[in-house]
Design a protein around this nucleic acid. Structure first.
Lengths: 193, 193
DNA sequence: TTGACTTGTCAGTCTTTACTGACAATACCG
DNA sequence: CGGTATTGTCAGTAAAGACTGACAAGTCAA
């Protein structure tokens, strides 16, 4: 009387697919590879950690692609390795709280992208200042233009500094209770426009 | 006694180039075309509005590319058209306050990317709920899994709602005095880690 | 209007990025 | 250890995205 089990429950797969596809699009939009986002979505939805073979079959991707994408997700602290004793395969699971995940992403972006840019802007500002002063000393006709360029560059460097402060403040409140309280406050800020 | 004017002042060009290149990289990092960023940087640095020919020559790009990129910048409200009476050419100028520019960018991203995603997430959540309830009614074995998937999807949809609230709060304080005050506060928030 | 100049469009091409699959390296079992 | 299951790497290829340049469309002075 035993029946062949359904290989893929239709309704569940359909629901999951929609979410996975949507998350893939969001990721692509924000400069993250689409496949990376899809794997993350799959792991977020999964009740238990998954191994690579399951992921490649479910998302129809090569294992090479999967391996690389998982390395990315690990580097972004979006997923964790799970070792099961007596099991050769490595399993992966996702953080289950979206805000915790989001904070990890922001922290990583800060480290990789914001800090280097802030540093570069300071260097460029210093260089602009030196050039402008040198032109002054030499009585060069482009001295005025150089000072003007310095002003604008310095203004942008200041903006980047303040931007970093804003991110730092966001990371400081964290995904915990304080952060939660502030997000609740945000909901009641009167909207512009 | 008149001397041939220097076609390109060395020091000024060098200073500008560094800034333009850096801004191009930042843009690329955040999902904006590199050329679009470079044009924006050039206009930000310029003391007066520039026409397309000046831009194409300065940045060594085709006018087709320039035309398309300028359309993008206009759509992002990052630059403005300037019409000079008795002049056929159209000139372009950039907003000069970085925070005002940044707010405009965020407002545009919200409209284009955040709102559609929030809407999609609500749809997907509703669909997951319907599927789960239908499975219940039919006594389907996948009912439990469907309810679990619904939970996780709903959790992410809530996160997106709160994320949008956060952006709205940011836009509400604006680039004006209130925003400036809050950014000053941000500087003194004790850092995490 | 015409004609000269400027800007917009888009097919074709070039460049960059993503993906596959064969092979290498690693981990784990007995 | 040796054998095998699994994961990592990377050269080659496929797909996506950016850029050019020829042509079309628009604009303005006369």
């Amino acid at each position: 009387m035993s029946q062949k089990p359904q290989t893929s429950p239709k309704a569940l797969t359909e629901v999951e697919d929609r979410f996975i596809a949507q998350w893939g699009e969001i990721s692509a939009l924000w400069g993250v590879n689409r496949t990376v986002g899809r794997i993350h979505a799959l792991l977020y939805l999964s009740r238990q950690p998954l191994d690579m073979e399951t992921i490649t079959k479910r998302l129809q991707i090569s294992h090479g692609n999967c391996s690389t994408s998982i390395r990315d997700l690990l580097a972004w602290n979006s997923i964790r390795r799970v070792h099961v004793p007596g099991e050769r395969r490595v399993l992966y699971e996702s953080e289950q709280d979206p805000w915790t995940w989001f904070h990890a992403c922001i922290r990583e972006r800060r480290r990789r992208e914001v800090v280097p840019v802030v540093d570069a802007m300071h260097e460029i500002t210093d260089h602009a200042k030196l050039s402008a002063d040198a032109a002054d000393a030499a009585g060069s006709p482009e001295a005025a233009d150089l000072h003007d360029a310095f002003e604008r560059i310095a203004r942008f460097a200041k903006f980047m500094d303040e931007f970093q402060d804003l991110i730092d403040a966001f990371l400081a409140v964290g995904a915990g209770p304080l952060g939660k309280a502030l997000r609740t406050v945000a909901k009641f800020v009167p909207k512009a426009r």
